Computed example of a mutant assay.
Amino acid sequence: MRIAIVGPAHPYKGGGVAHTTELAHRLRDAGHDVLIESWRAQYPSFLYPGQQTVDTPDGAPFPNVLRDLDWRRPDGWVRAGRRLASADLVILVVLSPVQVPPYLGILYGLRRRTRVVALCHNVLPHERKPYDAPLMRALLRRVDGVLAHSEPQAALARGLGPAPVTVAEMAPHLPAALRGRGEAVRAAGNGASGGNGTSSEDGASNEDGTSSEGGATSGDGAAVANRLLFFGLVRPYKGLDLLIRALPEGVSLRVAGEFWGGLEETKALVAELGLTGRVELRPGYVADGEVPELFADVDALVLPYRSGTASQQVWLGHEQGVPVIASRVGTLGDHVTDGVDGLLVEPGSAEGLRAALSAFYRPGEPERLRAGVKAVDPAPYWASYLKALVRD
């Protein structure tokens, strides 16, 4: 089957790029002839305040990519549609409603000569604007099918258009550079470096389980750092402010990721709460090669999201060998086994999150949860995903 994926590819960055690229690789490996129709210019800068492109690709680039689309050139949208009309399937990767005008131009150029599926990472954004629903309604009324990553997202799609909606959980698409530790854990049967996938660190233990360096130690010598990690793109719905307010006494926090606004407000909140010495802010894009160092000396990844759909973050934390403390939103609650490889909390409450973090730091609990961490196996997820997406 000839398949065209219209979506972002390198030099763009982020989860959408990683997913689009991995999807292309998987479809090609399944025997399909695949093209990625990507962007010369994707978003106006005022709509995307972060760094849009990078020099080093996240993962292995796909070899068959055409970068001709430009949000400033509607004539190119229609031209792309005419060019893609020979495909058997066109997949429109929907990351934001602002992509809809170019996609409508592509659909006009296609003139219904091939099947079109809207692959919706989010049917509607977490932080919505008045034009989001009308734009998505215009798109979903003109496609032949919709792929959503959860039942709640599917319900949104059904309310916006008549196209049949298929649900498939978003498959793991972590770059290979971030999968090494998880694959080692899986190959060793949950046993690389001391039985829990962590490297050993020296540290004498006091009677209460704390080390003479100030951190608790596990039975295999791995030290508890009394440090948590918040990692990824920082937006209001992800609840960083809740985490800062919930930080237990004696525990520090590392925040690493690109801020979509709110950096100065975050600094002010940290200062207001007297946490300047305990909250480390590393604003900016984090390249794949820098990720393992961020996780090397933390006890857990914390995902205090107020809302959520599909996310790779739990899998990322587990691939790095750390437990995850997450809100019961979107797929976060599906990926964390509460009390086994992490803890789950109800969203939106700093008090509830503080209670969970305090419970996490009970003597022996960080080590016990770390020992329960296992890496995800992507193969079955991708088999189901491709089956849902491609109909011969």
Rank of each mutant, 00 (worst) to 15 (best):
I5V: 15
T21C: 09
Y43E: 12
L47I: 15
A60E: 10
P63L: 04
V65Y: 00
R72W: 03
V78I: 11
A80W: 00
A80Q: 04
D88I: 13
Q99S: 07
P101H: 03
P102K: 00
I106G: 06
L110K: 05
A118I: 11
C120R: 02
P125M: 09
E127Y: 05
D132Q: 08
A148N: 05
L160G: 09
A171M: 04
H173G: 04
L178A: 09
R179K: 15
A184M: 14
A187D: 06
S193F: 11
T198D: 04
S200Q: 15
S200K: 15
E213G: 15
G221S: 01
N226H: 09
N226M: 04
L242H: 07
R245Y: 11
R254M: 14
A256Y: 10
E264K: 12
V270D: 08
E272S: 13
L273I: 12
R282V: 12
P283M: 10
E290V: 09
V291A: 00
A300E: 05
P304D: 03
S307P: 06
S307A: 15
Q312I: 10
G317Q: 04
I325R: 01
V340W: 07
L343M: 11
L344R: 09
E351Y: 01
P363D: 02
L369P: 08
P378F: 06
L389E: 06
